[in-house]
Amino acid sequence: MEFLLNKKLKANIVSISISVVLTFLITIILLLILGKNPVVVLGTMFGEVFGSGYGLGQTLFKATPLIICGCGLAICFHASIFNIGAEGQLNAGSFVISLVAFYFSGLPFILLFPLCLLSGFIVSGVFGLIPAIIKIKKGVSEVISTIMLNFIILALVNYLLIDFFAVKSTVRTEKISESFMIPKFSEYFQMFQGSSLNLTFVFALLLALFTYYLIYKTSFGYKLRAVGFNETASKYMGIKNNKIILLAFFIGSGITSFVGINFIMGYKGYYELGFSNNLGFTAIAVALLAKNNPIGVIFSALLFGILDYGGLAVNNIVPKEIMFVIQGIVILSILSVDKLVEKYYG
């Protein structure tokens, strides 16, 4: 495959492999300290994940939103934009998707689906433009502004939902029409019976390919990365840095809204407060582990999916929350291993 040939990518793959191995080693040590048999725990986990269609389906289902959000963030990170605001952005977009799907119930699916995508994209994208604009105009670091915006957006969505749109005495919107629900894999493949895995997973894979193409095969992608590497040089090459930063923020944030498709149209049929459960932050780890390569994002999202579902699978032996710890260890290992590998590859 073409993307494996580059030297830089080789270094990346080395450091990713080392950090995944390192994470497993630390996990094993951790399990030993806790008095659990690592062979049993890991064996059960992988057995459950890969041993049944249901397990595999659930793993892929958990990976789906991480692929989507990871791709959005990869675009931002390539431009050296530290978008910590995905959690807020994706909630705003998902909320709007649920409303559009509910209130435009008269439309045929073929029209409604793009409308949902578009409205979610624009809403999340616009919330991404706010930090972009104040970064460009006022030089305010996007780190702080996106963190602050997370809270603002979540409070705003909370307010709109509770006071106007929620089903009485719940924290969710009305259920959308059954006919708008995206088909589950189990409808086509018997083996996935009972799993929530739906066609959004395919959509996520296509999105990753599209994002890969955008970043590595178009002028926009090259300019995006040029700005990310060296803003001064890109300025002298006639690239309009501000335009690139605005676009990266808009597209990257906009894409995060698509996680709502998986949850609303593929799973529950409604938007619910807290559905994202820190997805916007976990996706940062997913993108970092993949070194912001969208194809890599697929794999690192799968790893996180395995941890997520695998946690449930081993819950009887060790609490499933151990997977949060392992996720934390993954991101810290990739950060530190990266620096060490960098020294060898120059």
Partner: peptide
């Protein structure tokens, strides 16, 4: 020491520390 980007490291530590707390109270 390693000069890792402070924002990224901060996000990582937050994930780890919050996860550790979630895990330990259950465990």
């Amino acid at each position: 020491k390693l000069k890792i980007n402070q924002i990224v490291a901060g996000v990582g530590f937050n994930l780890l520390m919050a996860g550790l707390a979630k895990f330990l109270i259950v465990f």
